[in-house]
């Protein structure tokens, strides 16, 4: 009995962290070894109007915490406006080396929100977001890293351990989410999955003692 329980536990533990995909090829990124990342305005291919700014405004902390110098996002956005690069689609189509040279950046991070599907059902809600991240070399324009991230976000409330109270709380959260959406936790979740997953995300940058590792 004990033994079988332990077996199940062991399997559950292993299944929980099974790596779904092969490790990425980091040779280009390691060769370029960027110290600084310029985050450019996010392209929005969805009808969710807040998606682009929510992602743009949440990208600096995870990249900075990863050990890279991250250029000041708001200053950069307004400076780009003044340089005729006010629109995210224009920036995405411009030469990465030109964009990088305006700011002295080693690498440029592009993000595109490809899908945004909100499902509101009676007692809870979930949002499925697909976002594509590409890091390009500021000197050559070559792709150093990219990630197609799909994340399912479920607004969480603190559970009090009372099923009825939880049901009511979930219903309230669903209603609140519909009226005043706060998408920052969603963006944080997608960014963390994209950047921090070992062998898939971005290796630690020069300001982390684990530089080059995960």
């Amino acid at each position: 009995m004990h033994k079988s329980l332990l077996s199940v536990l062991a399997l559950a533990g292993l299944a929980a962290c099974a790596a779904p995909t092969a490790p990425k090829d980091y040779s280009a990124l390691n060769a370029a070894s960027p110290r600084s990342i310029l985050i450019v305005p996010v392209v929005n291919n969805t009808t969710e109007v807040d998606a682009a700014n929510t992602f743009l405004d949440t990208l600096a902390p995870p990249l900075g915490n990863r050990g890279y110098y991250v250029f000041p996002v708001n200053l950069v956005r307004h400076t780009m406006d003044d340089s005729g690069l006010g629109d995210a689609n224009l920036v995405a189509q411009a030469s990465p080396t030109r964009v990088a040279s305006l700011f002295g950046a080693d690498a440029v991070l592009y993000a595109t929100v490809e899908q945004w599907n909100a499902q509101y059902i009676l007692l809870s809600s979930s949002i499925t977001v697909q976002i594509h991240y590409v890091l390009k070399d500021g000197k050559t324009g070559a792709v150093l890293w990219d990630q197609d991230e799909t994340t399912v976000y479920v607004p969480q409330g603190a559970s009090g351990g009372n099923p009825l109270a939880d049901l009511i709380a979930d219903a309230v959260i669903a209603a609140v989410t519909r009226a005043h959406p706060n998408y920052i936790p969603l963006a944080n979740q997608a960014n963390a999955e994209a950047f921090n997953t070992p062998q898939q995300g971005l290796p630690f940058g020069p300001y982390d003692t684990r530089h080059g590792g995960f």
């Binding site: 004990h2 033994k3 332990l6 077996s7 536990l9 062991a10 559950a12 533990g13 292993l14 929980a16 962290c17 600096a60 902390p61 900075g64 915490n65 050990g67 921090n196 070992p198 300001y207 982390d208 684990r210 995960f214």
Partner: peptide
């Protein structure tokens, strides 16, 4: 039995990101 005991611990350890908390105060 001892080996089986260790497996979940190892699996969980391998899984855990080397979380050292946020690097900066944002």
């Amino acid at each position: 039995k001892r080996l089986l005991c260790l497996l979940p611990v190892l699996a969980v350890t391998a899984c855990a990101a080397p979380s050292q908390g946020p690097k900066y105060n944002w």
